[in-house]
Design a protein around this nucleic acid. Structure first.
Lengths: 204, 204
DNA sequence: AATTTTCTTAACCAAATAGTTAAACCATAA
DNA sequence: TTATGGTTTAACTATTTGGTTAAGAAAATT
């Protein structure tokens, strides 16, 4: 490859991320990925020695994108409540843009790709400043005592889970009432931060 | 089989649920399931014609267990806040007991087993009374306005997601601070309901 | 004791699929 | 023009694995 990231390589990566997300590691076929990328199997192996290599490249690309994004939001010097809004919005936008992300990550976990998870430790995500900010707000009496890690996990849970569980949600809820998932997600950018802020803020 | 559910059949189902949870449908090997069940492949096919049958049986067994449990909690005639505590506790207990559940369900989703998801519609889960109860509390001014379905989804998100994302959480959080997942989960039976109730209750 | 059901062993088949290889084509840049 | 590296085609291999089969052993049922 002449350039560090040739166009073809990008096409392959994009295709691989999609197929792996939907099919999982074992379920994905190299032929299918090649087809989706608009190339052939031989060229696929020309760029990526084997399935593992391709999978790892896909996983790394996605996680790096997410972690960088989240890390950026966490480090910006904004008031806590605004920051919470930003984190939620960043997550939701990211997932709407590339809906395969949560499935892919969870699939990576499920397939017990321990190595991959270990590699995530190398990724840029430093939650200490955010945790410090929360501690400060607690000390100042602005929010109720809560473990900073727990607050972060709650934010992630509320933002990500509905995407992973989408089919179950639409079926179970839709069975009972009128329900439009896309509208629901749109509204969540507002309702999640509201929910969280209500949960932690101290009435004065 | 003479009895409706022979001991062997149970052993197979248990093994299948575990393997399918970890490996997914494609990733699971019949031989591996047979080994885990302590029997041989021929007998496996003696009880379950093929992989699909076995997968469906596993999925149905698990989902039926969950849905029945949750449905029971939702229908009990308890005050809303108590009910929220009960739902969370029921979920956490259930997952701690059979940790493969969330992974299995998500794997089912990922593998696009549309049929299976459709089958879930047949399962006993009627959320209307719970939604009615929430509406009543809103009208009585006891809790802030929130879409009942959204509240339910929030409850599920906070309860289930950490299990699905466990490896990521332990790595990311553990990288920054001392973190014990089991203790964290234990504490969640209290902190999740607190968090939710704080988020929705009206100060008087 | 006779019979039916459950279970094992072990060999086998067929399909799917990861990965290889070789020969040739094509664009581009030296 | 020629050399190089990206790309295609197509055939081939080796392996994995779902599923079958047959013969019989063990256990339960009659």
């Amino acid at each position: 490859m002449t350039t560090i990231n040739s166009e073809t390589e990008q096409k392959i990566l994009r295709a691989a991320m999609q197929i792996f997300s939907i099919e999982g590691f074992k379920g994905a076929r190299m032929q299918e990925i090649a087809d989706k990328a608009g190339i052939n199997k031989a060229l696929l192996h020309y760029y990526y020695r084997n399935k593992e290599t391709l999978y790892k490249a896909s996983f790394d690309t996605l996680t790096f994108k997410i972690f960088t994004q989240v890390n950026l939001t966490l480090h910006k010097d904004t008031p806590l409540f605004t920051k919470i809004e930003n984190i939620v919005a960043a997550y939701i936008d990211l997932i709407v843009e590339t809906p395969e992300v949560p499935q892919f990550i969870l699939n990576g976990i499920i397939n017990n790709q321990d190595e991959l998870i270990k590699n995530m430790q190398e990724l840029p995500l430093d939650i200490k400043p955010f945790m410090q900010q929360i501690q400060n707000e607690i000390l100042k009496g602005n929010i109720k005592p809560i473990h900073p890690a727990e607050l972060l996990i709650n934010i992630l849970s509320l933002s990500i889970f509905p995407f992973a569980a989408r089919p179950v949600i639409t079926n179970v809820v839709g069975k009972n009432i009128e329900f439009n998932f896309d509208e629901f997600i749109k509204s969540r950018k507002k309702t999640i931060p509201e929910f969280i802020i209500n949960a932690i803020k101290v009435e004065k």
